[in-house]
């Protein structure tokens, strides 16, 4: 497969995955707003989310102080900065367009339709339509994944698509956890508040039912974090993502990729053989920060090994 084709597939799936996870993060805020929280807590929650997404500086430059409405619009609709949901959908479509000969026409038409429909959404839409927008994003992502798994040949094209999806998802899941840990409101005074706020995260990630099945116990920050990091059977879980990442990387291995595979394996081993309590001994957010840095390193290595080979070798 052409390196450039692999690159487009990888970014196509990364952007799509990012779009849906951004929708989930905003969705969590929409749900939190329904809880009895002080206005300050709501703003602190948004502030924490912007920091976790690395968007706080860009936001401040544009809008100054944080308001719930503006933060929503910024993350969802802003067409000027590349990190918004709409821009991610556009980028996914542009990457798909560049490889429309490699993906199936069903995949292309779905991504293209998603983009065309996205043009009708924007900051001017009424409050009542916003929840629908987030649902629409999730639905379009589910649809695209289904069509991909239902029509794309099980070859390199699928492997690179998967590498993009799971690298992005591992990153995004940790960012969602991080946002919750950084949110002072997330550590409520009373246990019941804390439980309901972390349950909101689970619902936004479509993982609430799975939590109940796995734990049969009350929702606590530690349990939610452990589940989202350590379970290898939970599709949103970091451990699961690393399983997939490792397998797909192994399937496309070339003569340059040995070290990348080793690092992916090393990272995976932490989750496969490590203990949750040990990983987070220095604090959960410290661990999440370090993990994200190692994912970035992996992404860089994947690009060098497969996607943009330099020279004429």
């Amino acid at each position: 497969m052409l390196s450039r084709t692999a690159d487009h597939l990888y970014w196509m799936s990364r952007y799509l995955e990012r779009a849906v996870n951004l929708a989930r993060m905003i969705d969590a805020h929409q749900r939190l707003a329904l809880l009895p929280r002080s206005p300050d807590a709501v703003l602190q929650g948004w502030q924490a989310t912007l920091v976790s997404l690395g968007l706080d500086d860009a936001y401040r430059e544009r809008h100054g102080s944080v308001t719930a409405r503006r933060a929503f619009d910024f993350v969802a609709f802003d067409r000027e900065h590349p990190g918004s949901i709409l821009q991610c959908l556009r980028a996914a479509r542009e990457n798909a367009r560049a490889v429309r000969g490699t993906i199936t026409s069903d995949m292309w038409e779905t991504l293209n339709t998603t983009y065309l429909e996205s043009l009708s959404f924007g900051a001017s839409m009424p409050e009542s339509g916003r929840g629908e927008f987030l649902e629409w994003v999730k639905y379009r992502a589910h649809l695209t994944r289904g069509i991909t798994s239902g029509t794309l040949l099980r070859d390199e094209a699928l492997h690179f698509t998967n590498i993009g999806t799971f690298l992005e998802r591992a990153d995004n899941t940790t960012r969602m956890l991080e946002a919750r840990w950084r949110d002072p409101g997330g550590r409520g005074e009373r246990l019941v508040e804390e439980a309901s706020e972390w349950a909101v995260l689970l619902r936004a990630m479509s993982a609430f039912e799975m939590f109940r099945r796995l734990y049969r116990d009350s929702v606590t920050p530690q349990r939610v974090t452990e589940m989202l990091l350590m379970r290898d059977d939970l599709p949103q879980g970091v451990h699961r993502c690393l399983d997939e990442l490792q397998a797909n990387l192994a399937a496309v291995a070339n003569q340059h990729s040995r070290e990348t595979l080793r690092r992916a394996g090393e990272l995976h081993a932490q989750f496969h053989f490590g203990r949750f309590a040990d990983l987070c001994a220095e604090g959960v957010t410290t661990f999440l920060d370090r993990f994200q840095a190692r994912l970035r390193d992996l992404g860089q290595r994947i690009a060098n090994d497969f996607l943009v080979p330099s020279g004429t070798g």
Binding site: M1, L2, S3, R4, N254, Q255, G313
Partner: peptide, 18 residues
């Protein structure tokens, strides 16, 4: 950008090499 010439032979850059 996907193509290059070495020793008067044309190659494309793939994930598995030229």
């Amino acid at each position: 950008q996907d193509l290059f010439v070495r020793d008067a032979v044309l190659y494309m850059r793939t994930t598995q090499g030229p």
